[in-house]
Design a binder for these strands. Structure first.
Lengths: 334, 334
DNA sequence: TTGAAAGCGATACCAT
DNA sequence: ATGGTATCGCTTTCAA
């Protein structure tokens, strides 16, 4: 039965006093400082005392003393918050937690209307983003004491080299090819934040189609709120396009919806395949074929990279191809 | 052209030296400490120097000295991460930023597989959750130095008293009533995290239906992955139910989808209304009627409460009814 | 109006 | 194997 101090927080000095050793010794035990020999007896007594007193180290003091925050900040694009992404983040957080790091996520990079970015207020050791940061952002990070930044400033994000990006797009095309489609379109989303990723996926899809000897029409952005999706569907259909590769499942739903509204049958008149296997893919009628990636593995790798940046520890796992596969549903199978 | 120190961070001592005053004075200026009279001249010089040198206060040191972190942690349920929620959080963050607080969100309360909750690692001043925290969680927060917790430990969350919860549910029912429906069902989601909110919404809906003299059938949970949604739709239809109030848009899509798959027409044979007006509501075919709330206003209020807890400043805005309204689409209008 | 100095609590180096 | 203690950078009280 732990007795939690009602008023003052428990400090390492309290433990030292309780056990009858110095604060230094307490610190050595609690941080299992390497190169320090502490007798098993005192070690046990310190740990027991810490547990009994409900000791929690003071973040601020520890951060100040060691000069680092042990926080890793992940800057996400607005949307990418599907359930699978969520699961990945959990996995990443778990790996980082084992190394003593806390993972904090910030929804978006660009400060909207005067919200200072979290890197200024939290002073994370590492900031990881999906796209390259602007020079201003990098400067403000540096000023805030951020030690490492990914993607490295100056480097391009190069999504196309990330695992799963090209694979997923290729598999979308392969799937349509296997089903006999020979003239396809690529549909994107009007979302500036995601341009780089969209481009990479679209490029990979186009290239794959060419390899397979398929014909493609120009990339179009669709938005269900204006008439762009209806127009796109009409143009595509008139143009002999029989299938559409969508950037993600929302886009796939937009296209499929516009097709249905236009009186076309999905997939007989127009097949559609999405990407990410988000909830809408299985909820839509007809259910949307999509691409499911093992993003958990990706998160694990990302965490390893983060630890590499933070602690200099080697990146063990490799940027291998992710477990990516087609989830075939009625929007292509009929 | 700010000259950012390449190696060492800029400290308040650097500014003091640069300007030729003491570190204390620098601190007074930078924190605009009340009750301190600093000549306009030195104040300007300090600020200029800080800007030129690219000074960013060291979080850890400041936190340690003042004994608070100026972090407010918001613990969200897994799902509630729709775009509207996102916009609200931005608004909340903005209000808090003005008061010098950083808003950090944690996706879920229960630590999954050994991820320590962020309140242990960040030591926020205030933790705000959607549901009441367990005694263990409260203890761990206290040990981590968290000063205030909402909902207050021991208090029930009482969603039904939060603005917009009952309103939204009532409006769903009112909408169906106006369209002539007299026998309705309520559909929930199998999600333990959300039970309290679901119950509150469901109760409000049932009660409203009763007030209006409508008949209701027992609450059912649906899941598109098992056969439960198909079964529910069959039972409801056989039972003379003509419309369904869904807990949220995902549930509405599940129900509408099952109805369509069963050969029913939506809304002629079964009308469905969702809640939250999330993307799936407008993307689904037919588009789903839903409830849109001004969650931005709610976030503003929540931020005010947080500041009240943190700084003791009065809660100015009131828990007024939110701007909540029906977005009527074809899933009810036909 | 400004400065000196005492903490805040953990870390880690240097002794013992 | 353990203990002193200087240090991190800022806040804040007390003097000047």
């Amino acid at each position: 039965m732990p007795e939690v101090a009602a008023s003052r927080r428990v400090t390492s000095a309290d433990i030292a006093k309780d056990v009858g050793v110095s604060r230094a010794t307490v610190g050595f035990v609690l941080n299992s400082t390497p190169g320090k020999k502490i007798s098993e007896a005192t070690r046990a007594r310190v740990l027991e005392s810490a547990a009994r007193l409900g000791y929690q180290p003071n973040r601020a003091a520890a951060d100040l003393a060691r000069g680092r925050s042990k926080i890793i900040l992940l800057v996400l694009p607005d949307r990418l918050l599907g359930p699978s992404m969520q699961a990945s983040l959990d996995e990443g957080a778990r790996v980082l937690a084992e190394a003593g790091y806390a993972l904090v996520t910030q929804p978006q990079a660009r400060p909207l209307g005067g919200i200072p970015p979290l890197w200024e207020t939290l002073g994370p050791d590492v900031v990881i983003g999906w796209t390259t940061f602007t020079p201003e952002e990098v400067m403000s990070m540096r000023a805030a004491g951020v030690r490492r930044i990914r993607p490295r400033p100056g480097e391009s994000a190069r999504y196309d080299q990330a695992p799963g990006v090209a694979e997923g797009a290729r598999m979308q095309v392969d799937h349509l090819h296997e089903l006999g489609h020979r003239r396809i379109a690529v549909a994107a989303l009007n979302d500036p934040q995601m341009i780089e990723l969209q481009r990479s996926r679209a490029d990979a899809a186009m290239q794959r189609a060419e390899e397979l000897g398929m014909e493609t029409v120009a990339l179009r952005s669709v938005d269900h709120r204006d008439g762009s999706s209806a127009e796109a569907v009409r143009i595509w259909h008139d143009d002999g396009v029989t299938a559409v590769v969508a950037y993600n499942d929302d886009v796939a739903a937009t296209v499929a919806g516009a097709a249905i509204e236009a009186g076309l049958r999905v997939p007989q008149d127009l097949a559609v395949i999405g990407h990410d296997d988000s909830p809408i893919a299985s909820l839509f009628v007809p259910p949307l074929s999509s691409i499911r990636m093992d993003t958990v593995e990706a998160a694990r790798y990302l965490a390893a990279v983060a630890l590499h940046e933070a602690d200099g520890r080697p990146v063990t796992s490799t940027w291998t191809a992710l477990d990516t596969r087609v989830v075939a549903r009625r929007s292509t199978l009929g």
